[in-house]
């Protein structure tokens, strides 16, 4: 039945979109609050994935290694915010982009030196277990990965919509001066946001480690995709980013299944989506102005 196959393709796309959403949310959060485009965001994913790999080697399952990855990446985020991002907050955009791009090169090459350039993977007992629901099939690992991402995204949604911290974040994003006049400490929020975004990247890395190969340039593979998502969803919009990751995940899955040459077209899909959107709707799905 061809429509069953099509459904399978769609479901697999949706499952991978969970991770994309995690990565892109961190990126868009930093942009929304700090107004900095972080090219090194993909490297947080890579570091998270390697953490998960080495913890797995010493017997800790990926779901539990989240507990290590979150504080570790948050610390790294705080450190980077203090010494690198903070000094250029008022600099021109070109300087900020070049700085974070340089940072990503540094983190990549440190990873190349520390870990071997070979591809490694986390092989759990559900790694090659298929799940069949009414003849729609997907890997159990993809399911685990999706639910990790889904759970964290729900938590994030709650945090931003219903807590005091979330209110402050949204206030800063809306109007920085007005928020500061109301007594919100922007500087503190910058630190928290960057650390928070870094751990989101780390979580995405742990989730990815279950379904993909891990290698030092993993972050580079993610950064273009997450930029595509952020542009599609509108810079700074979290709901937009979630919807856009679904679009990217599903389109990649469809192209991977139906196009000649299959999943090799990966990066091209993201690019074509960006170009289509820049032509049709330059401000993204939910963007205004």
């Amino acid at each position: 039945m061809p429509d069953k196959i099509f459904l399978t393709v769609i479901i697999n796309g949706v499952l991978i979109a969970g991770v994309y959403a995690l990565v892109a949310t961190g990126l868009t959060l930093v942009y929304g609050v700090l107004r900095v485009v972080n090219f090194a965001h993909g490297e947080f994913v890579m570091i998270g994935a390697y953490l998960s790999y080495y913890l797995f080697l010493s017997g800790i399952p990926p779901v539990l290694s989240l507990l290590f990855a979150i504080p570790a990446l948050a610390l790294l985020g705080l450190f980077l915010q203090k010494f690198l991002v903070n000094p250029v907050l008022k600099a021109p955009e070109i300087n900020q982009i070049l700085l974070t791009f340089g940072l990503s090169l540094v983190l990549q090459s440190i990873a190349l030196i520390l870990f071997s350039p070979e591809h490694v993977s986390v092989r759990t007992n559900y790694s090659s277990l298929p799940i069949n629901i009414k003849s729609i099939s997907f890997g159990a690992a993809r399911g685990v990965c999706f639910f990790m991402a889904f759970f964290i995204l729900l938590l994030l949604h709650y945090l931003i919509k219903f807590t005091d911290f979330g209110k402050k974040l949204r206030a800063i994003q809306e109007d920085k001066e007005a928020a500061m006049l109301r007594g919100i400490n922007a500087q503190n929020l910058y630190y928290i946001t960057f650390a928070f975004a870094a751990s989101l990247g780390g979580i995405a890395g742990v989730a990815t480690s279950v379904v993909m190969y891990i290698y030092p340039l993993l972050g580079y593979a993610f950064i273009l995709k997450s930029f595509c998502i952020v542009i599609l969803g509108g810079l700074g919009s979290i709901t937009g980013a979630m919807l856009a990751s679904l679009i990217l995940g599903v389109s990649e899955s469809i192209v991977g299944f139906y196009a000649p040459g299959g999943s090799g077209w990966g990066e091209a899909v993201a690019f074509i989506l960006i170009v289509i959107f820049l032509v049709v709707r330059p401000k993204g799905i939910f963007g205004s102005e």
């Binding site: 070049l98 700085l99 791009f101 340089g102 090169l105 540094v106 983190l107 090459s109 190349l112 030196i113």
Partner: peptide, 9 residues
């Protein structure tokens, strides 16, 4: 690459 990155930063 490490040196290039450091130079940038």
């Amino acid at each position: 690459q490490l040196i290039y990155g450091l130079i940038l930063v």
